[in-house]
Design a protein around this nucleic acid. Sequence first.
DNA 1: AGCCGCTTTGGAAGCCCTTCCATTTAGGAA
DNA 2: TTCCTAAATGGAAGGGCTTCCAAAGCGGCT
Lengths: 356, 356
Amino acid sequence: MTGLLGSMPATIYEVAQKAGVGIGTVSRVLNNSSQISPQTRARVLQVIDKLNYQPHAMAQGLARKKSLTIAALMPFFTGHFYVELLKGIQQATARHKYDLILYSIEDLHDKDFYLKRALQQRRVDGVLLVSLPLSDAYAKEFQRRKLPLVLVDTSHADFDSFTVNNQSGAHAAVQHLIRLGHKRLAMITGHRESKPAQLRYTGFRRALAEAGIKLPEGLLISSDTLSGESITLNDGFNKETGYRAMQKLLQLNGIRPTAVFVASDIQALGAMQAMQESGLRVPEDMALVGFDDIELAEYVGLTTIKQPMFQMGQRAVERLMALINDPNSPRQHRRIETELIIRDSCGAKKEIKHKH
Amino acid sequence: MTGLLGSMPATIYEVAQKAGVGIGTVSRVLNNSSQISPQTRARVLQVIDKLNYQPHAMAQGLARKKSLTIAALMPFFTGHFYVELLKGIQQATARHKYDLILYSIEDLHDKDFYLKRALQQRRVDGVLLVSLPLSDAYAKEFQRRKLPLVLVDTSHADFDSFTVNNQSGAHAAVQHLIRLGHKRLAMITGHRESKPAQLRYTGFRRALAEAGIKLPEGLLISSDTLSGESITLNDGFNKETGYRAMQKLLQLNGIRPTAVFVASDIQALGAMQAMQESGLRVPEDMALVGFDDIELAEYVGLTTIKQPMFQMGQRAVERLMALINDPNSPRQHRRIETELIIRDSCGAKKEIKHKH
DNA sequence: AGCCGCTTTGGAAGCCCTTCCATTTAGGAA
DNA sequence: TTCCTAAATGGAAGGGCTTCCAAAGCGGCT
């Protein structure tokens, strides 16, 4: 009995010998080459089946100068966002019969090390760079060697990228609040240097401008204007900044806003906590809309902007495959549109109930 | 200018030539072979550095019959549990200078396909099988060929495994409730066929027995004894089963328990909802302890049992590396101990307050 | 000078494929 | 039958490494 895998996996030579053909012929069968007579093909396939033969990927890779492998470099932080993204990436990769090597970048210094490793040692056929900046030196390398690269949740003028449309997402969120009748709006956001924070702010301003609403002094609160322990972390999107920002808003007694757009759900949770501690209710005393659609958002009934990460992962891989097949394919910068998820915190549901 | 990666990556031949040595010597330097004179080594290293040379992993793999790659097969379901596990796996893999190929198994039928692919095509040096059953046919293959395999969150007599100690976790949860003075306890759990559900039940019984407490009729509710839409899904751990189970408990008016051990957090959330709808408070009217420590648990203040998945992922990889280095190393079955996370739902915190 | 035994080095063979070129074979046309 | 063309096939070369064996270098001995 040969066993499922063969005691020592068979090689193309054994297949050729048992089938009474040359190795070239076996290779041609394996690669669906055109010039093979149906009988020979059948005979070879039969032997392949009997020996349970599968080609050795490394030998194939060496000969073909292709690895049928792509690498994804991503920071492994938070939950939902990356899990969904990874799911999408993994699924699409498998569908194309490619394998995925995953590199988790915990320190930005490691990035170039792993890039080099993926490219030069592993000879991956393409790279997915997620949420990480592309250094100029590597940008040049990728271009010079025409290596397929797709950026996800980050961007660079010279390479394909998929990013969430932060601006239109924020715009939709704010527009929603305005339609619900709010005229006095505030915004809580992350650090001013954070790109997503900037874009979400732009969307906010645009929605206000379109409705002819002005943003009074003090109704925009960025994380870096606050003080506290976890304030300086990352992009400023965390619970504490949300909490402190809301406290600050609540101190502006006279001109308290009736609705707040919070640029991240996690901050929105902090904000809700601050309101609760002041005895205020959401949305009655103040309506809230967040951004991200984290897992908790559903639980607490937070209206928010959902980013379709699964789909984004899939599409990024599709694009990468296209680039692998045609490295000269023109650049594409895709903005993935977000979705407004209406729950309780914006007050829309109550309003509907009133009307009936 | 050579560029970061070399216009076409250098080979060992170029290095040898520029350094004025033979390829064997370069190879020896690369692999830290002993018999090399310091001067030669220095010269070769210098050229390697200048050419930015890195060995071609596929050529190395082919020659060495080793890939410096491991594969992880896992179902990609839920959040926290797998994300943490994957983080641990990824980190430990990188520390050993191995690369990780990730296979997501969405359909059990795919499992053997990907196993075969990993083993026979990719020639990975070891496999991590997560939360998936090992079929007998493959078990034999792994044994015969002495292929390093480590099971995570699943087990098989003949292979190394890392599992959460469900029983002692449940025991700790229930013991905690008993220490808080509860004498009338109930349990809500998943399907009776689910292995974790069974083990958690055993832990529950053991804690009761040790305290001399009997479990009255009707105070154990398994998902498969309920009716409803999502009831039959997977292992029975979902919100709806928790909700229905609690409803059922609440109908037993006379003998309502004072505390409930819920075998999964997600069910505990459903149970809390049912209580809330009946106007009951947690923990005043009924204390609750869950299992899993999902993200929401912290938010709602659910006392629960935390499974240290990150650590488990790391340890599984460590073990796999040990097996790669010594395939005859004796089997080990490790049970990872859980941690009791005390929050509000068990009433312990209030009790402490009372005392002061 | 000649010899011995290390240490150090060079490079052929081998790992398992793909691909290309040469060769064989079959089928038609003359 | 003979010759020509196209289809089918065999297998050498090559891809970049490791490893092993043979050979060279070296220092100290006699």
